[in-house]
């Protein structure tokens, strides 16, 4: 059974710089055909002040932002080999650009079992603001822990 005492647990805010090389690497790794995600001149020609991060890049920033405390999965003592991604949802605010400093806060909003405890679900919400205090959106992540 999943330890429901983790519900409500919130991380300390974590700040990470959006590095141009990382966004370009992501564009390459995902086979992006859209030059604005790796070519600064193309991005500027399209009216952007810098290279815009693609729509799912907030997930990468959360992975890359240095943790200040043990992760929820570590707290639960979960074997990473048993974790599957169940759902992921983004809502969008201001565009994230290279050169931004994004501050992330993640909160566990739900934890429950299915199939008599055989499958455990942990749902987290992450909110993100840029260096100007503007919301750049949020995301909800649902992880499934299989037996």
């Amino acid at each position: 059974m999943v330890d429901t005492s983790i519900i409500g647990r919130e991380t300390q805010p974590r700040t990470i710089a959006v590095e141009q090389g990382q966004v370009q690497f992501f564009a390459k790794a995902t086979g992006s055909k859209d030059r604005i995600h790796w070519d600064l001149e193309a991005a500027k020609a399209a009216g952007h002040p810098a290279i815009p991060a693609p729509p799912t890049f907030l997930f990468c920033l959360e992975n890359l932002a240095p943790a200040k405390e043990a992760s929820v999965l570590a707290t639960l003592g979960v074997d990473i080999g048993k974790v599957l991604h169940g759902e992921q949802r983004f809502t969008y605010g201001a565009q994230i650009y290279t050169g931004d400093e994004i501050t992330l806060t993640t909160k566990v909003v739900d934890a429950y079992d299915k199939k008599g405890g055989a499958l455990q679900f942990v749902v987290s919400e992450t909110s993100a603001v840029n260096q100007n205090g503007e919301s750049v959106g949020s995301m909800t992540n649902s992880l499934v822990i299989r037996p």
């Binding site: 990382q22 690497f25 992501f26 390459k28 790794a29 995902t30 997930f59 990468c60 920033l61 959360e62 992975n63 890359l64 990473i80 974790v83």
Partner: peptide, 10 residues
């Protein structure tokens, strides 16, 4: 490449 680019090192 995606592991490195996304920071998901599972």
């Amino acid at each position: 490449m995606f592991a490195g680019a996304s920071g998901d090192h599972n």
